[in-house]
């Protein structure tokens, strides 16, 4: 059954896939970061906080908004951008070079990286390969779009 994006169910589905691919994530190494994902649509946003620990997504929860001081960084973007990324991943099995998180966020033109502290910001790059692999698991999940 398809999970809708954005939703806690979507991230939970990725969490399950992540657990099922522990070998891959152990090979990539520890991932210890808590970050936010914010998806904007028609002036409204839905926001989530993802807490990664060791090799797993420990928890995910939806919040009214993300305070950058409470997390390492927040990935903020319009639902159109997120949707395009997800569809690209589903089409290719992984994000192509135009649709990976780094590319989308690099100059802040598609996704924005909001952060309070450079220490937190740098964690995005310290764990980049794991974070990208996490989102790439979308290729194994049926996703529908509810916005």
């Amino acid at each position: 059954m398809a999970v809708s994006f954005p939703s806690v169910e979507y991230f939970e589905a990725l969490r399950e896939k992540m657990a099922a691919h522990q070998d891959k994530f152990q090979r990539l190494g520890f991932i210890d970061t808590t970050f936010g994902v914010s998806v904007a649509n028609n002036g409204k946003s839905r926001s989530f906080i993802l807490e990664f620990e060791v090799y797993e997504l420990k928890s995910v929860r939806e919040v009214p908004s993300v305070d950058p001081r409470q997390v390492d960084f927040v990935l903020v973007g319009d639902s159109r951008v997120w949707r395009e990324m997800i569809e690209n991943i589903r089409r290719n099995g992984e994000a192509d070079t135009s649709h990976d998180i780094n590319t989308l966020a690099h100059l802040g033109e598609q996704l924005k990286i909001v952060y309070d502290s450079p220490d937190g910001h740098d964690k995005l790059y310290r764990f980049m390969e794991s974070i990208q692999e996490f989102f790439d698991l979308t290729s194994q999940v049926d996703v529908s779009f509810n916005q």
Partner: peptide, 23 residues
């Protein structure tokens, strides 16, 4: 930057690892 404008998957992957070490 090079990862974002990577001319090939090789460059993107390589830069992905490089950025982890540099960070």
């Amino acid at each position: 930057h090079v990862a974002a404008f990577a001319p090939s998957r090789v460059d993107r992957r390589l830069m992905g690892y490089a950025m982890q070490d540099a960070a």
